[in-house]
């Protein structure tokens, strides 16, 4: 039961211009309707714009995948699957495939849970590489900062890193765990053979490229959650 409301396009209306006066009246009417709808429905409903997500990745094709290239490597993202979580939130999962020019397909799975307000709560990356399954484990969002009571004698520590939002920290932790798992793998696997071609031309694909592609996917998912 996800609310199908999109607010795209309203930013284009410039108040004050004569042609927009009628639009402003319409806007007020719409807002009233929206407000009444929000009172009638659940307190908050998270919405994921699948089409906009697809547009960020060259658009969805007939086989429900999007094909695009990043740094001269081709990737394919499958249309995400959405489901409501018991608390009124949303679970989004999608599969990102990397198809090397030669060799086996590498499939990665992004699994994200959102709160009813659209906050990213948990994230997980699963990967199937050379028959081995790798997972970052469920990375959870940190609790919000608790404001000290106003009459507290404790010194107020200014937030030295205001850019460090809990959402950003979750994403950073997720990819930190991803890197840790990949490093473990490269300890056991023969990481890239240095044959004659590799020595002459270098390897065309590195696992760090895949991390970047996953992160781009995650950013676009986050952008399209409302």
């Amino acid at each position: 039961m996800l609310a199908q409301i999109s607010t795209r396009g309203t930013g284009a209306l410039m108040p004050g211009s004569p042609s927009n006066k009628k639009s402003n009246t319409m806007k007020k009417l719409l807002l009233t309707l929206l407000a009444s709808a929000s009172f009638a429905g659940p307190a908050a409903a998270v919405y994921f714009d699948t089409n906009a997500f697809g547009q960020s990745l060259n658009g969805w094709k007939k086989n429900r995948t999007a094909l695009y290239s990043i740094d001269n490597n081709t990737y394919r993202t499958h249309v995400p699957t959405l489901s409501p979580t018991p608390g009124g939130g949303m679970f989004v999962s999608t599969r990102v495939d990397h198809r090397p020019r030669m060799g086996k397909l590498i499939s990665s799975y992004l699994e994200l849970t959102f709160s009813p307000q659209g906050h990213l709560i948990t994230g997980q990356i699963r990967l199937s590489l050379d028959g081995k399954r790798i997972t970052t484990g469920q990375i959870e969002r940190e609790p919000n900062a608790v404001e000290p009571p106003a009459d507290s004698e404790a010194p107020i520590i200014p937030n030295a890193e205001p850019w460090k939002t809990p959402e950003g920290t979750l994403v950073a932790s997720l990819f930190k765990a991803y890197d840790a798992e990949m490093n473990k793998l490269s300890k056991t696997e023969g990481a890239g053979k240095q044959d004659i071609f590799a020595r002459m031309f270098g390897k065309s694909f590195d696992h760090t490229d895949l991390a970047a592609a996953l992160r781009h996917n995650l950013n676009f998912v986050l952008k399209n959650v409302r």
Partner: peptide, 28 residues
């Protein structure tokens, strides 16, 4: 304040990310 101190005192870092990241080892 040291970078990261505020957030470590608030709720702790996710368990999987707690371990320090080692540098990627050179290929064996």
């Amino acid at each position: 304040t040291q970078p990261g101190e505020i957030y470590q005192t608030i709720g702790g870092v996710a368990p999987s990310a707690k371990s320090p990241i080692e540098k990627p080892p050179p290929p064996p």
